[in-house]
Design a protein around this nucleic acid. Structure first.
Lengths: 338, 338
DNA sequence: CTGCGTAATATGAACGTTCATATCGCTGAG
DNA sequence: CTCAGCGATATGAACGTTCATATTACGCAG
């Protein structure tokens, strides 16, 4: 389609009887203009609906006002809790400071790093926003090596830029265990998923720390996969074992769903026979019976902090000296009992 | 931050001892080059890691290879089922044909249309992808008036470009009702949400058609809102009424969650005392007990078709003559009984 | 051996901005 | 009365491509 070219700066300049540069200044450095000129020009810009061509501006200035976000793979067998609210929050936060989010995904046969290189080389974006960052994430290493601005939801290594934000999962799970201890539970289990994602590890560490601090007896279980059947199977074993725990901390709400299913099949009543707490506060948790005690991630704050760090890196050229650890919010519901 | 300028076409040309245009041709019109030149140039491009600067290319050619997707508002009280799999599928489909997805959201105080105008005027994108399209969607009207390319997930009006793809909800719900009729149900209820979204209406129409076709007795209920409490309340009334229906068709899985909760509270056993079927196939449905019969949206096909139409509009300048209606896929699980 | 047509490659201009610098008009000190 | 200094605005160049067109190389008919 022949993209009918639109209003250019030249059109506005002609209409206003001034030069290009004056229009440019009206937008980028208004203080340079005589107030009356500014007002006249501004009105004209408004009337004609002029917007600087982003490509031309980018070509000259080298800045795109676009942030790339490599979308996490969203396995239907274990939906990424970030795809909903987090993405929203990121788009909103970025929008507030005049940036937009470009979704990225490696083409078939392309590595994550190649996908990053492609947009870097094509100068399509100013920076990257990474989520689901692993302990030794190749993307972080790659961007660090390339000296390209990024911010990460999830900790980076000490020798890498500390441009990260993360949730203090350890602390949150310690508090969860504390709630259980306060209700008199002595035998508590931790239910994890297979992956070695750092947040899983953190939650496990939190569990261990909580158990130690309160002198409880802790057991740990791992589901061989994230599919419903596998989850239910491992949880039934957990519930059937001798010395059945009286409380379970699931590393994520998704895992907790398996506990609900297994408990029903085993005739165990959650909230009465078994206390249950989890992590993520998926929207559906309100429908569970009894409703699930869980930890809500401060997605808005995380998004805002990440975007803030990104903008700082891009516009000032300075890298944050330290990461930012935000607390999770305990949402106490009946699943842990009265 | 001083964006260190990268490899330009000129660098490659110099290294290869040829002119700019030859490099450009190697990428955009390879058949014009002598095979040996092509090979030499291609290798050099590869070695130097050259990628055309997207801004420069866009400035000259007027095409950005970016599609804007105004993100649907994702109400946590009724999460948009599209935010997960659909977005994924769109990003993947677009990536395959060399396009990327830019997320868009009106700034505070900005209307949907203004947000569209902003990116149109700044020539940031080539086209729009709309989802959750309403019967008389102002965005569609606006883009039609502006003559700007778009494709819509959801039907447009007859006088607008028929560049849409939709799910044949009517047919799918008719089939759902058919399943219930075949199991001997005579009194069936339809549970809808408040909004007047076209897909809701379609599902309702499907229900009515199904009821008529099979000579059933149909009742319709509407939840006053999408919050869990409201859903459960209306469903309990439904279950408690005289002439309680033996089967319920919920307009969405989210609504069905309310039915599960209400049934538990009323001591009604889904699958035995009450057949239940819904729509969307949210990932969590596998955890429900009994598992929910529902309709899966062919998100991959929808995304592919939308992107295909978009590319056609952008690159050929032709608008599809007719919309595309895709069938939903019945996923039969125990909630409708044996 | 000349000249012509075509394939292959090269050159100049343009896309719409912003940057660096130049010009203009005015005020006020000498 | 001149001109330095400054605020306001204008001009030329450049960003890195691609398009339109020009030039060169080459095979082949006459």
């Amino acid at each position: 389609m022949a993209a009918r070219r639109g209003i250019t700066i030249e059109d506005v300049a002609r209409a206003a009887g001034v030069s290009r540069q004056t229009i440019s200044n009206a937008l980028n450095a208004p203080q340079r203009l005589k107030p009356e000129t500014l007002e006249r020009v501004t009105r004209l810009i408004e009337e004609l609906g002029y917007r600087p061509d982003q490509s031309a501006r980018s070509l000259k200035s080298g800045t795109r006002r676009i942030i790339a976000y490599p979308t996490p793979v969203d396995d239907p067998a274990n939906p990424n809790p970030l795809m909903g609210g987090f993405l929203e929050a990121v788009v909103a936060s970025a929008g507030e400071v005049g940036y937009r989010i470009l979704l990225l995904r490696p083409r078939p046969g392309q590595s994550q790093e190649q996908a990053l290189d492609e947009v870097i080389a094509a100068r399509t974006v100013d920076a990257f926003l990474l989520s689901d960052v692993m302990r030794d994430d190749p993307r972080v290493a790659h961007l660090t090596a390339a000296g390209f601005p990024f911010a990460a939801f999830g900790r980076t290594m000490p020798d890498q830029p500390q441009s990260w934000v993360d949730v203090d999962s350890v602390q949150a799970v310690i508090e969860l265990v504390g709630l259980l201890a306060a209700r008199g539970h002595r035998r508590v289990a931790f239910l994890a998923s297979v992956g070695a994602q750092p947040w899983m590890e953190d939650r496990r560490d939190g569990f261990r720390a909580g158990v130690r601090r309160h002198g409880l007896v802790g057991q740990e279980f791992s589901a061989p996969g994230d599919g419903p059947a596998e989850l239910v199977t491992v949880t039934r074993e957990l519930l059937r074992g001798r010395n059945r725990p009286t409380a379970v901390v699931a590393a994520g709400d998704w895992l907790a769903l398996g506990v609900y299913a297994a408990a029903r099949e085993e005739g165990v009543e959650i909230g009465a026979d078994l206390a249950l707490a989890a992590f993520d506060d998926l929207p559906l948790t309100a429908f569970l019976h009894p409703a699930l005690t869980t930890v809500r991630l401060p997605l808005q704050r995380i998004a805002r902090a990440l975007i803030g760090r990104l903008i700082q890196t891009v516009e000032d050229g300075t890298t944050p000296q330290a990461g930012l650890l935000l607390p999770g919010e305990l949402v106490i519901r009946p699943s842990i009992g009265p």
